[in-house]
């Protein structure tokens, strides 16, 4: 029996086999193409984004709606400038914390006063209305541990982590407070799940012994406050060696890097953590239909058996440059190879 996207996703998260593998096409920019407007204009008005997400959903039939716009929107709400470009997500401007001492005085924004965050909440409301309970609406927060990369700049932040634990923890307390409030605000508007972007806790960025004392402690504190499923997303960072730590945060799912083996990940996480991934979004720009099919099939066969798997890209944001026909091929290949029971004998 054909399931709705919501039923399909819930079954996958419960480690049961739905009718087919859910497909999360995490498109934050292609809506502007659908509407024929510049990216900066698209981001500026909730109505554009709601309409863009609706059109993308009808066109590609993905199993989620995504209220996320761009990573710099949180620092923007704290007072940072945002530098827009025509063909990709905007960059964050100069850090709002210009020297470590600024940590003493920087204060989280009031969500009610932030135009940018209110826009996200309006998008959430609009998508929830469109979904009518049939398609999960995914909200996003930046982890308190990763947000300072934009708040302070990467080098200054690493120096603070390793050289000034007092200031580091002071900033973490402020960020935690903001992150929990921001996640709850999205949930109150009807977001079904929250993606907790935390690339800094990945093995790529921080040694596991340090992230266990910092990033994962913080993640546990935040995630327990969020009512509903949370996906920890390492945004292409490596997570396999710290899979148990990710599970310990209480997360329901994890975003897997394209550099990691889904089968190996599945072996460790089976029945405990749903895997989301791990198509290579950068390489995807020049894939043809055959390559798409091979990649989709491989991912599904490695991680799909028994549920607990959602097919997606490995970064949580598909680049603007990925052509429509690649996205359509992903959709068709998922429908062809993702039906349960999986046709593993064809391998």
């Amino acid at each position: 029996m054909k399931m709705t996207s919501m039923e399909r996703t819930v079954a996958a998260l419960n480690h049961e086999e739905p009718d087919r593998v859910p497909l999360f096409l995490l498109l934050t920019m292609h809506g502007a193409k659908e509407l024929g407007i510049p990216l900066k204009t698209y981001y500026s008005d909730a109505r554009y984004v709601i309409e863009g997400q609706k059109r993308l959903h009808r066109k590609y039939g993905g199993d989620c709606l995504y209220s996320f716009l761009y990573a710099a929107i949180e620092p923007e709400s704290w007072g940072a400038d945002v530098i827009f470009i025509d063909d990709g997500p905007p960059n964050c401007g100069p850090p709002i914390i210009k020297c470590p001492e600024d940590i003493d005085t920087v204060e989280p924004p009031d969500i009610a006063d932030s135009v940018a965050l209110q826009r996200i909440l309006s998008i959430t409301e609009g998508l929830v209305k469109y979904s009518n309970g049939e398609v999960p609406v995914i909200g996003v927060v930046l982890s308190p541990f990763s947000a300072p990369v934009m708040q302070m700049g990467f080098e200054a932040y690493l120096d603070t982590i390793f050289e000034d634990p007092t200031l580091f923890w002071k900033l973490m307390e402020k960020n935690k407070k903001f992150c929990i409030t921001w996640a709850k605000a999205q949930k109150e508007k009807g977001a079904d799940a929250i993606t907790y972007f935390d690339p800094l806790s990945s093995v790529t960025c921080i040694p596991p012994d340090i992230s266990r004392e910092t990033g994962f402690k913080i993640a546990r504190d935040v995630i327990k406050e969020i009512d509903g499923p949370v996906a920890v997303h390492l945004a292409s960072g490596l997570g396999l060696p710290i899979a148990e730590d990710i599970i310990s945060t209480g997360a329901a799912a994890v975003g897997v890097s394209t550099f990691e083996d889904l089968a190996e990940y599945k072996k460790i996480c089976k029945g405990r953590l749903t895997l989301i991934g791990n198509l290579n979004g950068i390489e995807m720009v020049h894939w043809d239909a055959n390559k798409v099919e091979a990649e989709v099939k491989e991912a599904i066969f490695k991680a799909g058996e028994g549920g607990g798997f959602i097919l997606s890209d490995n970064h949580g944001e598909i680049p603007w440059q990925v052509p429509d026909d690649v996205l359509l091929s992903i959709k068709h290949s998922t429908e062809k190879w993702g039906r349960y029971p999986l046709r593993m004998e064809i391998l």
Binding site: F162, C205, I206, I210
Partner: peptide, 11 residues
């Protein structure tokens, strides 16, 4: 090779 982290390279 994924054995060490970016922060270790930087520091």
């Amino acid at each position: 090779s994924g054995e060490l982290s970016l922060s270790q390279v930087y520091i």
